[in-house]
């Protein structure tokens, strides 16, 4: 399937691309076909800086199970407010 569904989040931080680190301003999240991972569908996250062009991207494609585990790990790692 192509879900076409995309969650877009404004973020602040940095990501390391092919060449170097760059500030990331946008994250897009979608469950769809991967470009590379060996799964029919993956949870895909793109960390982007659109002002620096399309190559300013850090991309990950995770199976649904590993994406859930990662999300829980992120929440568990963050200090509680």
């Amino acid at each position: 399937m192509c879900t076409y569904q995309t969650e877009t989040v404004a973020v602040q931080g940095s990501g390391k691309g092919v060449a170097t680190w760059f500030p990331v301003t946008t994250a897009t999240v979608y469950f769809d076909h991967p470009q590379h991972a060996s799964a029919e569908h993956t949870l895909n996250v793109d960390f982007l800086n659109p002002e620096r062009g399309p190559s300013a991207r850090v991309a990950v494609e995770l199976t649904a199970a590993s994406a859930r585990a990662l999300a829980e790990a992120i929440l568990a790692s963050l200090p509680r407010d």
């Binding site: 897009t28 470009q35 793109d46 982007l48 062009g53 399309p54 991207r57």
Partner: peptide, 16 residues
């Protein structure tokens, strides 16, 4: 949107 980037980066830019 791709501005000469690879097809995967271009597709991500279009999606965004």
């Amino acid at each position: 949107e791709g501005k000469g980037a690879g097809p995967d980066d271009s597709a991500a830019a279009v999606r965004a």
